[in-house]
Design a binder for these strands. Structure first.
Length: 628
RNA sequence: GGGCCCAUAGCUCAGCAUGGAUAGAGUGCCGGACUUCUAAUCCGAUGGUCAAGGGAUCGAAGCCCUUUGGGCCCGCCA
């Protein structure tokens, strides 16, 4: 139970004291203390002030006195602070041992919030007509990190990627290939997704802008796509799957994997829409409009008339949001599954099997990728639509908070970076646009980062083999990219600047990874295998205790991140942990002390840090190299 | 016109959910530390009317209201 143990002990004792005083229903806090105020703090005195008609300071004194009579194993003493806080000092001899030996266990950092229940996490969900850009990467990294955290919190997680392989964006590249003569093979061995996005898509849409009569071709193609058996649809399927494969390469390279790919085209053809539409009608959640601007349409009622949302057009076809409703219901397991499943080829790395839906009835395999709860990662521009879906799902499923939209702000380009792409924004940041070709794609950011980190590594280790340098540079580049996407709050816009993103100092992944390498190096140089069979009472330096305390907070942070679906909590934790290790590193030498007992105790601590940091970084999908 | 989000140090951000102690980091600028377990590091200095105003509270960066500035969304497009 790590640091939680001392919190629980204090919590229980305080509750006992309150019940002796015949006071109940006080929701006081017991938290790790701010530096300089002991080890644990409680705000209990403030909350009692009114009831007891005494100042917080006096109450703290009273409680502190009473606390000294409680049974304590982990608390050394309590102390009332003049401000009114009640502070506690830990019995570090015991807490050291507890925290460090716990950290050596496989289960370290695990918390049980999910109780083994299933959770669907859907992320990525990009049109397969272009390469992933830096904005998509935010989505992907948030989704992947959240699913790793949820697993740590004992959820069984099904990760889905909704392949949006129908609609206009796909139609546009098909028009490019079939009508504007783009070769199916990219020139100069360009990656296929880059080719489709940079060349075919951008230039095809440019042609529409120049000649509006071409819109007719576009509409015809779109119509042909809807008929799954048409030659156009089959061609489109071939193209979008090639793009998808290239996109997945990018994801896999960043350490992101999935359980199942769901194809929008198949959801449309599966007939799920009709089923859910009947259900909506039965439950009176949709209404047919006889008059007004939406006359002849089926709508979902909003708060007022202006917010009514059309889901079936007057020509009988379903709108964009309508396609999302059956998929959301399917994810929650509310519909009979119309799909069969087959393994996706090529194989996904890290021996995680990737499945895909199919409507093919030969050799049917059934699978269950639904969940009791769902997290859908989509940027907050979709909040309005997601709110409608959330509310509908709330009516279908009684589990509270079954459907969750995890929104996040977009990634924009700094004016400098926009300028290098040929857009003068007059000093303002710019929204990315796939259509206009105004984006920074993820592969090139990775490549640039990797070149830089290779150079940095070579500078430090002239003796290293090329493959080792390559492997370190890969870990550091992926780490840097992922960390930048995750370290700040979801509701903050990220202004991406190509130059600034190359920074490898300060609050960055390389900083954290470097501390890990330092720890590894100490253990390697010692030539010993660290064990927990050491004298923990030798660890008394402030920097040592701070580090141990941070190590002991791991599971508390996982809990926080899970409850708030907040990946940045883990990013901050990794950083704090690294900072406290660096402080320890500066102040306490580990090797060549001439005191084997002390060396072993510190070595044990170094290894404890290394283990926990590796686990925490793993939640962020970041590797921790032993050397860099 | 309606709705959502943001505003804290020159810049980028923590802290806000659950009000309480001295508002913290990184970066930048200035200065210092590598014959030492890796300097992708560390130490010091500089830097704040927590956008503005009001309210409730013993107490507000945090809660409520108003205002200002910025971003996004509001189609029988997807």
């Amino acid at each position: 139970m790590t640091f939680q143990s001392i919190l629980d002990e204090i919590d229980n004792n305080l509750k006992k004291i309150l019940s002796d005083l015949s006071i109940s229903d006080v929701q006081f806090s017991v938290e790790p203390a701010k530096p300089g105020f002991g080890d644990v703090s409680s705000n209990i005195s403030f909350l009692l002030a009114k009831q007891l008609k005494k100042s917080p300071k006096d109450i703290a004194q009273l409680l502190s006195e009473k606390y000294s009579h409680c049974t304590n194993t982990l608390v050394l003493k309590s102390e009332s602070h003049p401000s009114g806080y009640l502070n506690f000092y830990a019995n570090w001899d015991k807490l050291n041992q507890l925290i460090i030996s716990e950290s050596y266990l496989e289960t370290c950092g695990d918390v049980d919030i999910g109780n083994g229940s299933t959770m669907v996490v859907e992320h990525t969900s990009v049109n397969p007509n272009k390469a992933l850009h830096i904005g998509h990467i935010r989505n992907i990294v948030i989704g992947d990190t959240i699913s790793r955290i949820l697993q740590k919190a004992n959820y069984k997680v099904n990760v889905l990627n909704y392949v949006d392989d129908s609609g206009l964006q796909v139609a546009d590249i098909i028009v490019g290939f079939k009508h504007f003569g783009y070769d199916q093979e990219p020139p100069d061995g360009k990656k296929f997704d880059h080719y489709c996005g940079d060349d075919v898509y951008v230039k095809t849409t440019e042609k529409y802008d120049a000649d509006s009569s071409l819109e007719e071709i576009r509409k015809d193609v779109l119509k042909e796509l809807e008929d799954g058996d048409s030659e156009t649809a089959m061609f489109a399927d071939k193209i979008t799957r090639r793009v998808l494969e290239a996109q997945l390469e990018t994801c896999w390279n960043l350490g992101v994997t999935y359980d199942c790919l769901n194809f929008e085209s198949q959801i449309i053809r599966s007939g799920l829409w009709n089923k859910i539409f009947e259900k909506l009608k039965e439950m009176n959640l949709v209404e047919f409009e006889n008059e007004g601007k939406n006359s002849g349409c089926w709508v979902i009622r909003g708060e007022d008339k202006e917010e009514d949302k059309v889901i079936v057009r007057s020509n009988g076809t379903a709108t964009y949001i309508a396609k999302d409703i059956p998929y959301a219901a399917w994810k929650l397991g509310l519909l009979e599954d119309p799909f069969n499943y087959e393994k996706y080829v090529p194989e996904q790395p890290h021996s995680r099997v990737l499945w895909q839906t199919t409507l093919n009835k030969t050799n049917p395999i059934s699978k269950d990728f639904t969940g009791e709860k769902v997290v859908t990662v989509i940027d907050s521009r979709q909040s309005r639509l997601q709110k409608i879906i959330t509310s509908l799902m709330g009516k279908f499923k009684s589990v509270p908070d079954a459907y969750n939209h995890l929104g996040y702000e977009s990634v924009t380009l700094s004016s400098d970076t926009a300028k290098t792409l040929g857009l003068d924004t007059d000093g303002k940041q710019a929204q990315m646009s796939g259509r206009k070709g105004l984006y920074v794609n993820a592969d090139s950011v990775y490549d640039i980062l990797k070149e830089k980190t290779k150079d940095e590594t070579k500078k430090r280790h002239s003796e290293m083999s090329t493959s080792e340098i390559d492997s370190i540079a890969h870990s550091v580049s992926v780490g840097t990219l992922r960390y930048e996407m995750i370290k700040q709050d979801l509701d903050k816009i990220i202004t991406f600047d190509l130059t600034k993103s190359l920074s490898l100092e300060g609050d960055t992944a390389p900083y954290i990874q470097y501390t890990h390498a330092r720890a590894s190096r100490i253990i390697e140089k010692s030539g010993r295998t660290p064990t927990i069979d050491v004298d923990f009472s030798l660890l008394t330096e402030k920097s040592e205790l701070d580090l141990i305390k941070n190590i002991g907070l791991f599971n508390l942070q996982v809990r926080d991140a899970t409850n708030n679906l907040s990946p940045k909590v883990i990013a901050r934790y990794c950083y704090d942990l690294a900072v406290s290790f660096n402080s320890f590193y500066e102040k306490s030498k580990v090797l060549d002390l001439g005191d084997v007992e002390l060396e072993n105790s510190r070595l044990c601590l170094v290894n404890s840090f290394k283990i926990v940091l590796e686990k925490a970084l793993d939640l962020l999908g970041i590797n921790a190299p032993d050397r860099m």
